[in-house]
Design a protein around this nucleic acid. Sequence first.
DNA 1: ACCGCCGGGTGCC
DNA 2: ACCGCCGGGTGCC
Length: 832
Amino acid sequence: MCAGGMAFRRSWFSWDRYSEVDLFTERLDQNNSLSQAIRAAASDEMDADGNVLFGQIQGTVVGLKYYSGVVNQGEMVGLEREPHNLYDRNAIMVANIYGSQVGHIRKDLAEAMAYILDRKLAKVEGVVHSSTKNRFSMPVILSFWGKEENKSAVIQRLACYGYKLITGGLKNAFDNLFEGLLESKDGEKEAAESVATPLLPHQRQALSWMCARENECVLPPFWEKRGELYYNTLTCFSAKEIPERVLGGILADDMGLGKTLTTIALILTNFHDGKPLPVYNRVSGTLSIQAPDEQSSAPFLMLCLLRVYSRSMHTRACVCVCPQDQFEEHLRADVKLRVYMYHGPDRNRSTKFLSSQDVVLTTYNVLHDVSSPLHDINWLRVVLDEGHVVRNPNTQMSKAVLDLKAKRRWILSGTPIQNSVKDLWMLLAFLRLKPFDVREWWNRVIQRPVTQGDRAGLQNLQTLVKCITLRRTKTSEVNGRPLVTLPEKSVCVEQVELSASEREEYELAHNEGRHTIGRYVAEGTVLRNYADVLAILMRLRQHCCHPDLLSKTASDAGLAATPAELREHLIEKLRVVLASGSDEECSVCLDSVRLPVITHCAHVYCRPCIAQVIGTEQESARCPLCRSDIKINELVEFPQEEMAEGNGGRSPGKWRTSSKIQALIGNLLRLRREDSTIKSLVVSQFTRFLTILETPLREHGFRFVRLDGTMSQKKRAQVIQDFQSVTPSSPAIMLLSLKAGGVGLNFTAASHVFLMDPAWNPATEEQCIDRCHRLGQKRKVFVTKFIVKDSVEENMVKIQRQKQELVEVAFGSVDNDRKTSRINDIKALMKL
DNA sequence: ACCGCCGGGTGCC
DNA sequence: ACCGCCGGGTGCC
């Protein structure tokens, strides 16, 4: 500690040798001797090798039962990489002090650690503090030591695997850093007339605050004027010249509160001292200023400004950096701006051209191109959208961002802090918040005190952040009213008429079902036969959607009352299986099915293969797939006439449409004609219906994605991201299985919802609609429910309206009256 | 009948 | 291993 103090004084003196102005005009870390001195002083947690403690994590030693080495409580353990381990090239062996193997580091953590150890980014020491709780594994505390410059790489690597280095308390405290900032920052400002979208009250407040940040020359936090000097109360530094003001800040509102709109309003409204940006008017081709009182002076002002700015590539242009997938969101048809998208291979790299724009949009990836002309321009403003994406200051991308020259600087971010205080440095450095934009000062004055648990350090950090940040959450209120209200939602039912042939099929099934259920009603056995009743209803519901939904499940076969019906069902199933497009495999020969037959248990094999199985096992023969009894004379094959027209025994599966599909496609085509940016959710309870829908969507050239319950979490996230993207090539339609996924899903890119078939429980429909009609939805939401006229669906809707769940009918412990009413429901459904 | 729920099999790297 | 994780069986009270 003593040595540290000496070193600090040395650095203080050496700093003295440079003029005071240096602190504000040059990056101190460009000066080697000084930054070295500070760095040497910075760490009193160094070991003999000059390594510093990065932090600790708790890991797990596994596989104890396979090895003889034992460890006592509090004992140190050795860690050894086993790059040639047969099972895992990332293996890390754990041994006790005698060198006897104790076990291995659990493989997920081993993977992260192997990367770090193999690259010598850190050394790791293990200590077993708590004793073994079981015979199989035990916890171990792992301390990571290394060179300061490798620290963030190590932290980042561990973070990739979900491990967070513990660097000392106060974690929760800075998690809440941004939560104390929920205040209105008084005052509202109307946007310039060129902003076509009216601002909400909280957006006008943000605009007022942002204009003030750009126009008012307030001292940065911790600076005050003392007599003739400007004095920093944290560093005790004083200077004669006024410290450079931060013209900008962090707009950290929650997603959906309109950060982008507010920023566009800022660009148009606050060109100069609260005056609007002179906007090029596309219609008349002349320059005009939108604020009425400025009209006469506009051309003159423009000339002056253009002349002033034409020197040394100063410009009135703003550059906005955003993540790739959010590119288009900034383009608003109603704002007449010279906007240039600086990306793609043919981008115009002329600084003169770029400087002549109002807004240049680019991405973080394009920006870090070394020869970027964007770095040769002195921008009026630079805006980082989703600014938290550049939080690691060591990346090329971050350096490119920091090197942008601009008078005013803004960060938009819904989640300003991701992991730790460290993330903040990048934000403050970008804003050039003196003196903390210099890493060493940030470390000494803020970061280290905070990570060491110094309350005052945290207090200072909070003050710092508070001065430059505006944050409201979706639950914030302004004048007792919520910040945002959802766009309108309208729900309509579209009746679908079945075609003559569909009606014929439907009535056939309906009469059959009505007969069966009528019998149950007469016998008073409806509730006892409920599964059958549901199955009948299910078949009718499927009829309403598409005939091909009916014939696939094995249980259908079970429903058949007569051998002839069973045979029909099995043939139908065989037809569907072979038509499904996938290369159906025989489970006996594991090859494509030749001479297909279907068993009574509804599994498909090659006839020779399954015949051999039955021949060998005789009376005890069982289906290789489900172990049901099978007999040679019960195998069902296609009737000869169908075999002939089939493609060598496999029908190519002729796709057919249905009335409901026609109704949907009609709507989708109409929407596409009206506005090709409209996106829709197409929802069904039958995933096979979704599959059937894929064909006409493809035929009509719709781009679509699909989300159903069979997909992994990772795949779902990918699909949702694709769908939510606003690029022109992104999918316009999501095929969605009604019950897929949890409540957290966000489909706000869609403004139209098509519910293809009614659900028993209307709440599941509502939940689905709410995934699209939620915070972040910018358009009016239209919900269309397709209901087949004169069908079980219509009756389902009637029952829905009474808010009754059919399942309760049969199984609920309801009293007799209610039971009677449920039975009446079923009668109503079947028109009995 | 895409879902959650249950209980059995299972287990370092 | 009194876990987590996996896959199979299962069913709406």
